[in-house]
Each structure stands twice: as structure tokens, then as C-alpha cells.
Write a protein that binds this DNA or RNA. Structure first.
Length: 432
DNA sequence: TCTGGGGTCCTAGGACCC
DNA sequence: TCTGGGGTCCTAGGACCC
């Protein structure tokens, strides 16, 4: 692996990360909260107590999690992903604001558009961070970083942190080092002093599970990981991951920037206010499934995709999660077809516990229109099973009523039969 | 005081085909 | 009668990220 660009010169990759993004956008709306512990999250607006301008964390009841917290709130130990009830125990007086995703999306577009004026070589890594290839942008790295920060500040009024190194892996870690409002420039020669003392968890790609396993082997820092025998890592973490761990610990990463990407799947899911019983809450579950299908159909229409594969996700009261999916003979995008496919998937689940979450996912995405071109090919007609009598064939806009191929239907019915007939009936009822 | 919602990628086994 | 191995598709689950 190398960190060289095409010309042989070292690359210059920047990682730009907005500081406490959602919370910072909220502070633009509520400047009076600046300097206070503020948490953004929750599933619905919390009613403010009379006499108090803002709701407090301690008054929250429900299953929401913190989406972001200001640095003042983080000082209490609150971090994103933490349950709000737990966060309230740590910082009861912190202000709790509901999320306003439209506003975050707007500000996100604004900062990315501003940065694109400096270089078009941008990899979008979500709502609040990007990678930039600044190898060919003239200017010294620190000056360039300060310029980018100023460009972002002018466009949004917000601060960000920037790391500049020869690759994405190191830049991601570098941008964290001086957060918030920081700039960190790192060369490969600084890996032993700046990177190796960090915990393994600081590497993008080493999560909670891998961290725990490494700690079990007394490997806590990236430096200790770098010293580990690569063959030993492969033995314990598998060929692919073990090899990658070794490379990552030495700061080696030659991945190019991904400048554009087509979505692979689109999904909608919801956690219920309380766990729902398969039979007693049948009407509610049915309505929730319908809502999810409607929202997914809207997403597909807005983005111009059809789904060749539909899947459901269920999470039970004990937090175990299962998925079932099904490849269709014909791509679909409308609410009724999504619900029909979801119903087929639901029949393959044993529903013996209460549910806390339901989700639906559209995969195997094809661009709207593309499937019609394909279908006009003779071979495609045969593959789509248009001569299969079990398949209701597409009459103009009705092609979406096509169900799964005979093959996947066969498989669906063997093996995993629901053990409780009545529960199975109830499941089927949701989508009827 | 239990754990959101939106994604991607990887692995692994079985079916199926050659 | 038993024996193959390779390749692809489908499905389920899990790790990880923002």
C-alpha cells in the first residue's frame, strides 16, 4: 500500500468535521443558550414547564436518545446515542431541544457548497463531515485549513475541525485531535508520537466489539496494535479484518475519495412508544406498517428509484432483532406493493414476543425508467417470468402487483414455519 | 435509566448451475 | 454410485459509521 497520488507525490487529504453539528445549528436559532449544556434529541417536542423558556432533560420521559450534545453537556458525560433518561441522570438541568432535520440539511448543503468553491474533489461522508483531496490546491496546509474554516464560517456561522494528512484514515483521526475549532496537520513521521498513544477505538473502523476483543488481548493503544504480529491478528480477527488492523495501526491507507455514489437501499423504521403485542395491538401495528410503507414509497418516488428487493426488520422487547427479505420478480415502488411484500416477509417470522420496532427496507434499487428499458429486451422478459402463470403480468402501471418468483416462494415456505398458528395469523393481518 | 434512525460492507451457508 | 469444484444469487445476521 502507498499513500502516493497518481503522480508519485504524497497526497494531501483533508477531513473536515463540523463541531457538535446539530447542537450548533440549534444555537444559531437560540443564541441565548450559548455556553449552556444543550442536548438535541427526543422523538417529539418536550413541553416546557411554565415559567421556564426551555424544557429540561430531567422532564423528559420516553425512549429517545441524544443525537448531539454541546461540549458543555458532554462535560457531564452525555454523548450522542445515549438514552435521554440516562443522560438526564447525568445532566438533569441541561436544555433539551427537539431535532430539526430540515435546518441541518440546509446548513449541511451550505457548508458543502462553500467548500466546493475551493475544490470540487469532495467525498460526502454524511450530514456533517467530508473528505477533500487538496493535493493540487496551491498553498501551505495550515493556511489552507484556516481558509477552509473561514469559508465554512462565512457560509454558516459555524466552526469546524480539520485534519490534513496523506490519507483518509489519518485525516479522520487528526481532525479529532484538536476539536472543537481545531486544525491538525500530520506527516507520516509523526505517527509514532501523535497516533500510537491513542486508544484503538480512535481508528475509524474499530468499534465496540473489536475494541473489547483487543483489550482482552491486552492491546489498548494503536501503538500496541502496531506491534502485534500480523499473522497473529489474522488468526484471531480473520484474514480481511486482521490484515486491515495491521495496516491501519501503521497509518497506511490508499483508498481513493469516492466523489459520487448511488444509494444501495432506502429504509424507514420506527421504535414504538411502548412495546406492542402482536394480537392485542394488531390495529396499531397494521397502521404503523402502512405509515412506513407510505413514507418509503414517497422516498422512492422523490429519489426516482424502484426496489427489486423488499425487507422487513423487527426488534422484540428483549432487543433481539431479525430481518426477512425477499427478491421480487419485478421492481416496485408503490405503497400497496411494498405492503404486500412486507406481509409476505412477516409470514416467515415467529411472533412470540412483543415488538418494540418495525422497519421496512427497499433494496436492489433501480433507477425509475431503467427497468422498462430492460424489460423490452427479449432475454429480460424471460428472466422476469412474464410467461410464468403464477405471476400477474404488468399491465401498464399494474406491474407492481407481481409477486416473488416461484423459487423464492418455495424457499420461503420451507424451514422456518411459525410455531404458533394464531400469532402467524395475526401477523398476516397487519398488512391486509 | 436501558439502548433512535438512516445507512454500508462483510461473512457464511444453501440453492442452483455448469 | 459416488465424486468433484467453481461461480453466482439469495438470505440472515452482525459490525460499524454518522
Amino acid at each position: 500500500m502507498s499513500d502516493q497520488g497518481g503522480s508519485g507525490a504524497p497526497r494531501r487529504i483533508a477531513h473536515l468535521d463540523m463541531d457538535a453539528f446539530f447542537a450548533s445549528v440549534e444555537l444559531l436559532e437560540h443564541p441565548d443558550l450559548k455556553g449552556l449544556p444543550v442536548v438535541v434529541g427526543g422523538r417529539r417536542p418536550v413541553a416546557a414547564i411554565a415559567g421556564q423558556p426551555y424544557p429540561r432533560l430531567k422532564d423528559y420521559v420516553g425512549r429517545g436518545v441524544a443525537t448531539t450534545a454541546t461540549y458543555e453537556a458532554r462535560a457531564f458525560g452525555v454523548h450522542s446515542g445515549m438514552g435521554l433518561m440516562k443522560a438526564a441522570a447525568l445532566a438533569p438541568e441541561a436544555i433539551l431541544l427537539p431535532a430539526h432535520f430540515e435546518a441541518y440539511t440546509r446548513v449541511s448543503r451550505a457548508f458543502k457548497a462553500a467548500v466546493a468553491e475551493v475544490t470540487p474533489l469532495i467525498e460526502d461522508r454524511g450530514i456533517d463531515e467530508i473528505y477533500l483531496d487538496i493535493t493540487e490546491v496551491p498553498g501551505e496546509s495550515r493556511a489552507l485549513a484556516l481558509h477552509l474554516k473561514e469559508v465554512v464560517r462565512r457560509a454558516t456561522g459555524l466552526t469546524c475541525s480539520i485534519g490534513i494528512t496523506p490519507n483518509k484514515l489519518l485525516s479522520k483521526m487528526a481532525s479529532e485531535l484538536e476539536k472543537p475549532d481545531g486544525v491538525t496537520i500530520l506527516g507520516l513521521d509523526e505517527i509514532p508520537t501523535r497516533i500510537w498513544p491513542l486508544p484503538c477505538r480512535a481508528v475509524n473502523g474499530i468499534g465496540p466489539k473489536a475494541t473489547a476483543k483487543l483489550v482482552g488481548f491486552h492491546i489498548r493503544t494503536i501503538g500496541e496494535l502496531a506491534k502485534a504480529n500480523p499473522a497473529w491478528l489474522v488468526e484471531h480477527f480473520g484474514r480481511s479484518y486482521g490484515t486491515w488492523l495491521h495496516e491501519a495501526a501503521h497509518g497506511r491507507d490508499d483508498r481513493p475519495l469516492t466523489l459520487s455514489r448511488e444509494p444501495k437501499s432506502i429504509s424507514r423504521e420506527t421504535t414504538f412508544e411502548r412495546d406492542l403485542h402482536v394480537k392485542l395491538d394488531r390495529a396499531a401495528l397494521s397502521q404503523i406498517l402502512l405509515n412506513l410503507c407510505e413514507r418509503l414509497a414517497e422516498d422512492l418516488a422523490r429519489k426516482g428509484y424502484l426496489a427489486q428487493c423488499v425487507g422487513i426488520k423487527l426488534r422484540f422487547e428483549d432487543f433481539t432483532t431479525i430481518t426477512r427479505d425477499q427478491t421480487l420478480t419485478w421492481p416496485i415502488a408503490d405503497t400497496a406493493s411494498l405492503r404486500e411484500a412486507a406481509r409476505t416477509c412477516l409470514k416467515r417470522v415467529t411472533l412470540d414476543r412483543r415488538l418494540r420496532l418495525m422497519g421496512i427496507r427497499a433494496g436492489g434499487l433501480v433507477k425509475e425508467g431503467a427497468h422498462l428499458l430492460q424489460a423490452s429486451e427479449p432475454t429480460a422478459v424471460a428472466e422476469y417470468g412474464l410467461f410464468n402463470p403464477s405471476c400477474q403480468c404488468p399491465s401498464e402501471d399494474q406491474f407492481s402487483s407481481c409477486r416473488s418468483s416461484a423459487r423464492s416462494n418455495t424457499r420461503a415456505h420451507e424451514g422456518h414455519q411459525p410455531s404458533d398458528e394464531s400469532c402467524s395469523d395475526a401477523a398476516a393481518g397487519w398488512a391486509e
